[in-house]
Design a protein around this nucleic acid. Structure first.
Length: 860
RNA sequence: GCCCGGGUGGCGAAAUUGGUAGACGCAAGAGACUUAAAAUCUCUCGACCUUAGGGUCGUGCCGGUUCGAUUCCGGCCCCGGGCACCA
């Protein structure tokens, strides 16, 4: 009687085997090649979502694959534990963020264990632990001493009703998410780290990150955005002062017809003292959020200051506008405007009736209607005084030279990248270890006083938004330098600070320093896996942080992550009903029945609860707001971890989005049961030893050839991380084995085939393969087995199929002896009846033979 | 608005990188087993035409390069990710 496949029991047994054998606990071993495989750690939001399951399955598959290749594999896990959701939960449920966070960690950790991920839990960390954030506080004080940290004013979203700073996420259509009040831009002093000092290195080393997706490398290059341009001074009429601007198009300088400054620019503020309308306009410009997407899409508005700027070359006076799209805190707070050759300036000029001048003509000499449309290409200068007739490229040099000679400017390198603002006006984060002393000024907290602990024992009531602001118990302190009364900084770090170095801390658990020598054994991370949404910010900050740690002597590599895999999103169908107030109420796919037409296309959907119809809202990223998340726990309980893992690997390639389907999970389950049944039915025969010399007949040889062909493909797909194709190949191999009979030779092929399929699947479905490997007597530990290789002998063929095309269209398939040369292949192709028929009366002009593939006959 | 991706059957996808488009799986249909259902197994499955040999069309749309284009080039449309305080 064959055993039933019972994943719950089986998986628990295999998991305790791993725990008892400390299978995934690793130490530095100089005898073996190391492999550090890391998945982006989760924010402990409550429970795992499908995106986590996908991310960690991909990581675990890679880790186990590398381990089966014989490497010393480190795969750790931890928690990105500081952040906004804990504060939101605290406000909603009156619970302290710390407790909420630790409870979530406990639950999610148990879920990760249930999925069978091979983590070394000894190295687990949570970024809200003082022993963790102590060291980033320390590094920050060191950077301050080196001059890499400074303080300046920067804009934040201010909610005037709740009297609090809002995250961009909390600004919805320009209003505070809780209060609904119009948000204002406000400037407050904040801490910055000089990432721009490392801009060139961060940019240039992207070229060496060969195993990163091109997409991510391009995004980082564009984000850093190094440009070469010219900086120059415009005079201000009747004043000694001047406005400094930067442009990448100095060749258009003679086409400047106005200058725009930020509404908060001192020049604008001064002009507003005499001009109530301007003062009102400046006030209006303060409204709205700070996000770039918002600033770039707002209606461009401006107002004359009544002040003129002096053109640096012509000496002409051009009007100065205050404009809502120029920001005081970016660049110099002033821009030159060339409506003839810039689209935004053109639109603005048309709106306010400003002169539009053409100073560039196309190189092909064509004429333009510059009043109708800006010409933004490079060309030849016209009406540009001494520079007329030069090409844009030449004019760049000569204008820069002219400005430099007159002491009015010169060439300048510029970056789009801005310094990293790390201050957050929030409670649930790592305190910034700085002290404000009335005598000594700013004093960093010395190492002996670190960590600056965040009080966790906090009572929340309805008025508590930030329990450490205006809290003398936290902020009162003595100055480490003069011993006098002083105040602690009450802002906390951006949570990107914690996520920028956790990968390094995993390598040195328990170290009484930021890192120790163990870090240089494991680093850099060989494979990093995480969502594409982190392509720029997190991955750029982590690269930066690695260089900071290198320059502090803590690591000896330049880059933290050698190979990067950015996984796609998990998406699912959405269903909703329109509400009377115009909003939509979203239903979870599990609450809905969908009816389909005879082709299987969805026609309509009804709610299970009341049988009434619901709208089909299309496929979207799984999210709380669209209520289309599928709880992985339900699936794990029903099918087991192997099925969930296999399904997520099989459904789409790791870097593409994964569309959820319950039926697909059923299919993955069916495959595992098929594999199980095959192994169990023939278990008795298979576990016996079979003769070593076996004569295979032609169809058995063909079966073996196909098996090894699929094996070859699977191995190739492991290398290029197309795990969906690996699963396809395993399914194909299993189908071949199912067609075999029970002769000794057939059984030998089944046994051989199973040993291949089990090893190929071991990284993906580790529990069932571990069990079957033992059952069939292949060995005790599949993870320690030899990684399979195709049998070249089995792959040999006597004749090969060729496709024959006539003028590019397939007309026949022919069998050609494997050793035939090109003329022989050509001869066989031209003798084919159907080929002859399509050549007909026309003459054969050319015959193209692609070895082992196809013949194309060109006939006219 | 700016930067980066993606678009292939009813659906998820494959095509070893310019060489047979649709492997593998889901759904659907037919059949076998069963008193029946479930499970399992077998077959069919891009569209249209067909004298049943096969033929024509087909990889978002329009054009180009090539003996040959899902793949390369140019232009467009649609969908998604990021935009510095969500993580």
């Amino acid at each position: 009687m064959q055993n039933q496949y019972d994943p719950a029991t089986l998986e628990a047994e295999v998991q305790s085997y791993w725990v008892n054998n400390k299978t995934f606990e690793v130490t530095e071993d100089l005898e073996k090649e190391k492999f550090y495989c890391l998945s982006m750690f989760p924010y402990p939001s409550g429970k795992l979502h499908m995106g986590h399951v996908r991310n960690y399955t991909i990581g675990d598959v890679i880790a186990r694959y590398q381990r089966m290749l014989g490497k010393n594999v480190l795969q750790p896990m931890g928690w990105d534990a500081f952040g906004l959701p804990a504060e939101n939960a605290a406000l909603k449920n009156r619970v302290a963020p710390a407790g909420w966070t630790y409870e979530n960690i406990d639950y999610m950790k148990q879920q990760l264990k249930r999925l069978g991920f091979g983590y070394d839990w000894q190295r687990e960390l949570a970024t809200c632990q003082p022993e963790y954030y102590k060291w980033e506080q320390w590094l920050f004080t060191e950077l301050y001493k080196k001059g890499l940290v400074y303080r300046k004013h920067a804009v934040v979203n201010w909610d005037p009703v709740d009297q609090t700073v809002l995250a961009n996420e909390q600004v919805i259509d320009g209003r505070g998410w809780r209060s609904g009040a119009l948000v204002e831009r406000r400037e407050i002093p904040q801490w910055f780290i000089k990432i721009t000092d490392y801009a060139d290195e961060l940019l240039e080393e992207i070229d060496q990150l060969e195993d990163w997706p091109d997409q991510v490398r391009t995004m980082q290059r564009n984000w850093i955005g190094r440009s070469y341009g010219v900086q120059m001074d415009f005079g201000i009429e009747g004043e000694k002062d001047h406005l400094t601007i930067y442009t990448t198009r100095p060749d258009t300088l003679m086409g400047v017809t106005y200058v725009a400054v930020a509404a908060e620019h001192p020049l604008a503020l001064r002009a507003a003292e005499q001009n109530p309308a301007l003062a009102e306009f400046i006030e209006e410009c303060r409204q709205g959020g700070t996000s770039e997407a918002e600033l770039e899409t707002i209606e461009k508005k401006g107002m004359l200051l009544g002040v003129n700027a002096v053109h640096p070359v012509s000496g002409e006076l051009v009007p100065v506008y205050a404009a809502n799209f120029v920001l005081m805190t970016y660049g110099t707070g002033a821009v030159m405007a060339v409506p003839g050759h810039d689209e935004r300036d053109h639109a603005f000029a048309r709106k306010y009736g400003i002169q539009i001048k053409q100073v560039i003509q196309p190189k092909d000499g064509s004429t333009l209607d510059i009043q109708a449309e800006a010409y933004t290409e490079k060309g030849v200068l016209q009406d540009s005084g001494p520079f007329t007739g030069q090409t844009s490229e030449d004019a760049f040099e000569s204008i820069a030279g002219w400005l430099q000679a007159k002491g009015k400017g010169g060439k300048s390198k510029n970056y789009r990248l801005r310094d990293w603002g790390v201050s957050r006006q929030r409670y649930w984060g790592a305190p910034i270890p700085m002290i404000h002393c009335t005598h000594c000024g700013i004093v960093p907290v010395p190492l002996k006083d670190l960590p600056v602990r965040l009080p966790e024992d906090i009572v929340y009531d309805e008025n508590t938004i930030n329990p450490i602001k205006n809290n003398p118990e936290f902020s009162d302190c003595t100055c480490p330098e003069c011993g006098g009364d002083a105040q602690r900084e009450t802002d906390t770090f951006d949570t990107f600070m914690e996520s920028s170095w956790y990968y390094a801390r995993y390598t040195t658990p328990g170290a009484d320093s930021m890192l120790d020598q163990r870090a240089n054994y494991w680093l850099p991370v060989d494979q990093y896996v995480g969502g594409i949404e982190h392509a720029v910010l997190h991955l750029l900050y982590a690269r930066f942080y690695h260089k900071l740690m290198r320059d502090a002597g803590l690591v000896n590599s330049d880059e933290p992550f050698t190979r990067l895999l950015t996984q796609g999103m998990v998406v699912a169908d959405t269903y909703y009903r329109d509400q009377s107030d115009g909003s939509k109420h979203w239903y979870n796919p599990t609450e809905v029945d969908v009816s389909c037409d005879d082709k299987g296309r969805p026609l309509s959907a009804t709610l299970k609860e009341d049988a009434g119809s619901v709208e089909i809202g299309g496929i979207e990223k799984m999210s709380k707001s669209k209520n289309n998340g599928v709880d992985p726990q339900t699936l794990i309980d029903r099918y087991g971890s192997d099925t969930v893992r296999l399904y997520t690997m099989f459904t789409s390639p790791p870097d593409q989005s994964l569309e959820w389907s319950d039926d697909g999970v059923e299919g993955a389950y069916r495959f595992i049961k098929r594999l199980w049944a095959l192994a169990e039915t023939s278990q008795d025969q298979l576990s016996q030893s079979l003769p070593t010399e076996i004569e295979y007949d032609d169809s058995q040889k063909e079966a073996r050839r196909e098996l090894h062909e699929l094996l070859k493909k699977a191995l190739y797909d492991y290398q290029r991380q197309r795990f969906n194709n690996v699963v396809s190949a395993c399914m194909g191999m299993t189908n071949i084995l199912y067609k075999l009979g029970d002769s000794t030779a057939d059984l030998a092929i089944v046994k051989e085939g199973l040993s291949l399929v089990l090893r190929l699947l071991a990284p993906i479905a580790p529990h069932v393969t571990h069990h079957l490997w033992q059952t069939l007597g292949f060995g005790n530990e599949i993870l320690e087995s030899e990684w399979p290789e195709p049998d070249e002998q089995a792959l040999k063929q006597e004749s090969l199929p060729y496709v024959v095309q006539v003028n590019g269209k397939v007309r026949a398939t022919i069998q050609v002896p494997a050793d035939a040369d090109k003329p022989a292949v050509e001869k066989i192709a031209l003798e084919n009846e159907n080929v002859k028929r399509f050549i007909g009366d026309s003459t054969v002009r050319k015959v193209i033979v692609v070895p082992n593939k196809l013949v194309n006959v060109v006939a006219k």
